[in-house]
């Protein structure tokens, strides 16, 4: 065995790698896995319950494999590095490589190694010995958004909730409070749809939003405000680290109509919240795309098509938020605005 490679770690719920024993749907993709992952693939059985609901079939198989098996599936030659991420001390934390036939390889020093086939149909996961929820968070944050693009959808940074069949997308800068806002909208009766990535697809004159995994990240400060009873009403805590806790939520995987986009901006001195209709800046949409390393002509043209369509057809609003307002207070105002907007357009 090559140095540094280990046999597979035991994983909760892992089964024979040839048998996709667990299924789920996220971002409009039917996921089949040989391991159970809360909020991602947790339906027992080989057939996803949504496969006959008329949504175009997109399917990916996720396999928990050993490092040896993963390395055997990745060519030694003909690969090229697409990008790196380094920490503050210059250490590599993520390396992304591509091979024209084998697809993509993501190596995250903390979470493990992952190979995604070029068509997005297969994912090999060789995680490091961290808690299951942690490496699965990497699957949610990096691998599934890559599948979104490989399956022909677009992923925009943002969170989303829905009111009946209408979803609103919440777009903000990193750490801009979109997850907290989404969670507080759910506390007020909205349905949870997505945290961090909006999987979008043109649907005739409208835009479909495919709900993400049934998972949300809640920062500890926000969790303290919500309190244990409030958190228990929202869902089940499946993991926690120094920064946040991971919450498995109730979520309907069926596609929704994207009824509006809210761009959340923090103002230094704004005395109160203002919400105004805007024409979204193309740059904000294009640079808000979740995946910047798949740059085939087909993807780039598809991305331009979709965001031009979104820009012309989905109402967009800028919410300038006074720093003094808490996430629940902001949720009240956004909800009132969204419900009026949805009622007015129906």
């Amino acid at each position: 065995m090559p140095p540094g490679l280990t046999e597979p770690r035991p994983a909760t719920g892992a089964s024979d790698s040839r048998t996709p024993a667990w299924t789920g749907r996220a971002f409009g993709i039917d996921l089949h896995a040989n391991f159970r992952a809360a909020g991602i693939v947790e339906q027992a059985g080989p057939t996803a319950p949504h496969e006959d609901d008329g949504v175009p079939a997109r399917r990916s198989h996720l396999q928990l494999v050993s490092d040896v098996a993963l390395e055997a599936a990745w060519p030694a030659a003909g690969t090229r590095t697409l990008g790196y991420l380094h920490d503050d001390e210059g250490r590599s934390v993520l390396t992304i490589a591509e091979h024209p036939d084998a697809g993509f390889r993501l190596e995250a020093s903390y979470y493990g190694r992952f190979v995604v086939s070029a068509d997005g149909g297969r994912v090999l996961c060789a995680p490091t010995p961290v808690a299951d929820w942690e490496w699965q968070a990497f699957v949610v944050g990096q691998i599934l958004p890559l599948l979104v693009v490989l399956h022909g959808l677009e992923g925009l940074h943002g969170s989303a909730v829905s009111f009946a069949d209408d979803a609103i997308g919440l777009v903000a800068s990193s750490c801009g409070g979109k997850s907290s806002l989404a969670v507080n909208l759910v506390r007020r009766g909205a349905a949870f749809a997505a945290d961090d990535v909006l999987a979008l697809e043109r649907d005739g004159a409208g835009t479909a939003l495919h709900p993400g995994p049934a998972l949300a990240s809640v920062r500890h400060a926000e969790a303290d405000v919500i309190g244990p009873a409030g958190l228990a009403e929202l869902g089940t805590v499946v993991g926690r680290n120094d920064h946040e806790l991971r919450l498995a939520m109730q979520r309907d995987a069926r596609p929704l109509n994207l009824a509006a986009l809210y761009f959340i901006e923090r103002a230094e001195h704004e005395p109160s919240l203002t919400i105004e209709a805007i024409e979204p800046d193309p740059l904000q949409l294009l640079s808000g795309s979740h995946n910047a390393f798949v740059r085939t002509a087909e993807r780039l043209v598809g991305q331009l098509d979709l965001y031009a369509h979104v820009s012309r057809s989905v109402p967009a609003f800028r919410a300038v938020v006074w720093p003094g307002i808490d996430a629940y207070g902001l949720a009240c105002l956004i909800q009132d605005h969204a419900l009026q907007m949805i009622a007015g357009s129906s």
Binding site: D281, A308, S311, R312
Partner: peptide, 9 residues
């Protein structure tokens, strides 16, 4: 090129 709401990209 595609037409966005406020400009052409």
């Amino acid at each position: 090129h595609r037409g966005f709401a406020a400009e052409t990209v």
